[in-house]
Amino acid sequence: MHELAITQNIVALVVNASPHRPIKVITLKVGELSGVQEEAIRFCFDVVSKRTMAEGARLDIVPVPALLRCRKCFLEFLLNDKWACPSCAAIGGDVLSGKEFFVESIEVEDEREENALG
């Protein structure tokens, strides 16, 4: 189950970015070709985030579609099940995006405003 190891990485990364403030939202970018399963990450997250600043955070998972560029006519197109260029039918385009797997941003409780109020 590599999603477990991956989810541990996510939690380590966000807790490192916000060691003291509770994390409310974690936005992930998951490429179509990243090999990562959204459901499995959600499944692991509750377990892995227990007793950390990320506990209870909402996971916003933004899928990134795979974008290919034809090697023949250089048309950019979204991945289809044949991996074929919709214009010239050539196969084996270069993958421009869709392999990424990023923690894009987190939302944390805003300390500054609390201070301002106090």
């Binding site: 991956i6 990485n9 996510i10 380590a12 990364l13 966000v14 970015a17 916000s18 409310k24 939202v25 992930l28 909402r58 990424e100 797997f101 990023f102 923690v103 894009e104 941003s105 987190i106 939302e107 944390v108 409780e109 805003d110 300390e111 500054r112 405003e113 609390e114």
Partner: peptide, 29 residues
């Protein structure tokens, strides 16, 4: 339960700050 409240009611919750990370999850490996 989580999916619904968010996006609507920013007002009545604790103020939040967004931190941009843009870090690969596989970075450590």
């Amino acid at each position: 339960t989580h999916e619904h409240p968010h996006g609507h009611d920013h007002e009545d919750e604790t103020p939040r700050q967004t931190i941009q990370l843009h870090q690969s999850v596989f970075a450590a490996n």
